[in-house]
Amino acid sequence: MATNLQRGPATVDEDREANRGKSRTTTIVINLVVMVITLLVLFPFYEVVIVSFGNNPGNLIPHIFDIANYRYIIVQSGALRAFLTSVGIVLVGTPFSLLLTILTAYPLSKKHLPGRGILTGIILFTMFFGGGLVPWYLVLKQLHLINSYGVYIIPSAINTFYVILMMTFFREFPDSLEESALIDGASDWTILTRIVLPTSMPVIATISLFYSVDRWNDWFTPILTINDTSKWSLQAFTYNLMQNVNQFTSNAQASAAASVAQSHIQILPDGLKMAVIIVGMIPIMCVYPFLQKYFAKGVMLGSIKG
């Protein structure tokens, strides 16, 4: 406040517009506080990067730049296959989930659909109560989904929260547009594909991104259901490497020692772990700008109006 007064009456109006009594010192202090928090979040990632390039864990300043960890992870460890499996899961699973979600959300967004209340209730009930882990596992077993690629796609095909999100969006769609199309003889299917979907691209983009990230990050399904290492997703592979890192390290050291050019290289367990983490993070970083563009919209769409 004091600084405002010192600047004299001429700037008071300006201040009111832009600052409303916000002093510069406070802004700097707040900046510093948030900057410290941001650095706390950022710093671990810096460590991950330098350790993945062969620096000792605990080093602050990198002095080695070596890609032996990446070479082993990508070429020999089986991570490449797991990476491609994960890519495949996202490419097949996302459109599949999206289609099912649209087909669920669109009819349920129609106020006049008879039985809408019951149908919505059936779906929402699953958010409150479920059979639990063991019965769910037994169903997967009964359907022969254990140790199959299908387990990545089918049991998690619909996320009820995203259905609600999309329903909320479709509900905002003006009825008049659809009614006039109906009068012109268009079927509900035509209205959905030709009119509703083309104008719903933001919500479709949001939900596709959410589904892809969920697919990419799903680690529990394969841990629970996939024993066959050749069918591991990258998350399952990463989890396994974390658990059995010493075995991976001795394999990596053996193969490095076998090649004359690399025999001087010492492979550390931490380096392998961090390299596989980076490999798993790259696709997320690639879509992150889009995620950032859409996620706020997604959060707001589905959120309770406050």
Binding site: P44, N217, Q235, M242, G280
Partner: peptide
């Protein structure tokens, strides 16, 4: 947007 497998790996490191 990271899974806990990955983020816990970083934290443990």
């Amino acid at each position: 947007f990271l899974s806990w497998v990955v983020f816990s790996g970083i934290m443990i490191e």
